[in-house]
Design a protein around this nucleic acid. Structure first.
Length: 560
DNA sequence: TCTGAAGGCGCC
DNA sequence: AAAGGGCGCCTTCAGA
């Protein structure tokens, strides 16, 4: 049963819709949170339909009401609009409209971490709500989406994708609500240890950073050098007789000169301070919690993005600041070699699936005799999935193609399709954006123009090659998290979200659950079982395994 | 003085 | 060691 929520003027409407898309009731709603809670108590499998989870759900969570299942029309519209599986649908063939604008806008507005994103449901300053009120017909859009799925030859896959995408939206809102436990004191200790004490004057360098600057200036005989300026640094290096074309660390690493070591150290610490230093701490950690702004579906491949706080780039250097509450633990789990396993399963490559069965896919590839070392196996796989053409990775790739012809053929086909300007799709039916870079042979082009156009085509081919793997891995991760969420809420039997085990962090192929210590073992078992659930949801019963590395720890940096 | 591109680097 | 996919964020720097 679906319940479609919408605002009309200042009133709230709810429309009950059955599985076939027929309207079967319009219950009156006085208080949304109470309505949701009561409805779910009577019918736990109700699926709430709304235009944007990020607009509706935070205020429900503030009222201590969780939603079991939802249908996020904004995210699902973006999928159905592009998918080759719904190409012929009314929804896909319609002219661009306000739902496309909403999907495109995402929720790009920067978020003030000190305040919830939407203080009330009727905050008419919010763009998404304005659109909802003025131009979006929520019920009509929902029926169009149901129709697009029902008329598709791949309705089952799409249903699973839309359901996983929507569950992801709920999880993102819940993780932001709960926050990642963060010790500001531990963070400050890390910074103090590495950089020196926090300067009392703004703009002043911490002692250890200043000492490195002094040493760099001395070694380059350049007393006023500002080493954070690439242009200045390049000039100073040149004067000192060092031939560098850029100031990138990996290029500097090749060079032999007394300035290189302190310079690299300076760059590392400078990066730490500007990206995750004291000012980051001040703006993103409040009351012992880091609340990043996740953006589900923010990447074309279906991966999540973030729009503040940089949660998906959290450096290993500061993960020691992530501390479980007293009496609680973190259950940290990451999927081993997720993308190669996804590729093996998508291609139905029995050899590669078998290579992964023992637990370490790369060792399995070595054991098959295709390459000689684990490092080479990894390099060759990365080359296959990213489209390496040169270097060691490019040289190793052909050996992989001989050993695992089906898996390699799948990514090669995706690359060729992209080069021809065609669309490719993930396992559940998220399609790549239309290609603009089909290699065209035009006699009027100069050889240089033709070469440039071919390179654009190849570049788009590398994108589509990677798209099918990265996108399907993202689907696996969404299914994994959705299953974890379901299992955890059953485990905790109606306890409120943050009083029971709950997801607090997600990083593409890795999750962190914050759990009371006595439940940690049980949570770890459910997280492992959920990985098997995800494999079945996406690939059915083929015998592919998705092993996890799991740890129960007090601090995130102790997980590996 | 503001804005957008580019350099650089963190994560997967 | 560093070619190949996807990002976000901070800084510098050039141009309006």
């Amino acid at each position: 049963m679906y319940l479609v929520l919408a605002t009309s003027g200042r009133t709230l409407t709810a429309t009950r819709v059955d599985a076939a898309g027929a309207v079967v009731g319009e219950p009156a709603v006085e208080n949304l949170a109470a309505f949701v809670a009561q409805t779910q108590a009577a019918q736990p499998d109700t699926r709430w339909v709304w235009h944007d989870t990020a607009a509706w759900y935070p205020s429900l969570l503030e009222a201590r009401v969780r939603v079991n299942r939802c249908f996020d029309l904004r995210l699902c519209h973006a999928i159905l609009r592009n998918s080759v599986f719904t190409r012929e649908s009314t929804l896909a063939r319609a002219r661009a409209g306000s739902w496309d604008a909403l999907a495109q806008a995402g929720h790009a507005a920067p978020v003030d971490p000190l305040r919830p994103q939407h203080s009330t449901l009727f905050d008419f300053d919010d763009d998404a709500q304005k659109v909802a009120d003025g131009e979006l017909d929520v019920l009509a859009e929902f029926l169009r989406q149901l129709d697009a799925v029902a008329t598709s030859r791949e309705a089952g896959r799409l249903q699973r994708l839309l359901s996983a995408e929507s569950a992801g939206a709920l999880i993102a809102a819940e993780m932001r609500f709960a926050g990642l436990p963060w010790s500001a004191q531990a963070h400050d200790e890390i910074l103090t240890e590495m950089l020196g004490p926090r300067p009392s004057v703004d703009g002043e360098r911490p002692a250890k950073l200043q000492a490195l600057v002094d040493e760099v200036r001395l070694r380059l005989d350049s007393p006023r050098l500002a080493p954070e300026s690439p242009a200045e640094l390049l000039r100073a290096l040149s004067v000192a007789g060092i031939q560098a074309t850029t100031t990138r660390s990996w290029e500097l690493k090749q060079l032999k000169h007394p300035v290189i070591a302190p310079l690299l150290e300076f760059k590392k610490l400078q990066r730490l301070m500007t990206a995750n230093g004291w000012s980051w701490l001040d703006s993103w950690v409040v009351d012992g919690r880091f609340r990043p702004d996740y953006v589900p579906g923010g990447v074309v491949t279906g991966r999540w993005a973030t729009s503040g706080g940089g949660a998906l780039q959290l450096p290993h250097l500061i993960r020691g600041a992530v501390r479980a509450d007293p009496g609680w633990k973190f259950v940290v789990a990451d999927a081993s070699q997720l993308e190669p396993r996804i590729l093996a399963a998508m291609a139905g490559d029995r050899g590669m699936v078998a290579a992964g069965a023992s637990g370490d896919l790369y060792e399995g590839i070595v054991a098959s005799g295709a390459v000689d070392t684990r490092a080479h196996a990894k390099l060759a796989m990365l080359g296959a999935m990213y489209g390496a053409t040169s270097g060691e990775s490019g040289r190793l790739m052909p050996r992989l193609a001989r050993a695992y012809p089906q898996a390699i053929a799948l990514v090669e086909q995706a690359a060729r399709a992209g080069e021809r300007g065609e669309v490719v799709s993930t396992q559940l039916g998220r399609s790549s954006p239309p290609g603009k870079h089909a290699a065209a042979y035009d006699d009027s082009q100069s050889p240089a123009q033709r070469a440039a156009s071919q390179e654009r085509g190849r570049s788009w081919g590398r994108f589509t090659r990677n798209f099918i793997v990265q996108g399907t891995a993202a689907e696996w991760a969404l299914c994994w998290m959705a299953s974890i969420r379901n299992r955890l809420s059953q485990l905790s039997d109606n306890a409120w979200l943050t009083d029971a085990p709950h997801l607090v962090f997600f990083l593409h192929d890795e999750v962190v659950v914050h759990a009371p210590a006595e439940l940690a073992d049980s949570v770890a078992e459910h997280v492992t079982a959920a990985a098997a659930d995800a494999g079945r949801l996406i690939f059915g019963d083929i015998p592919v395994t998705f092993p996890l590395t799991t740890a129960i720890v007090d601090r995130y940096d102790h997980a590996k």
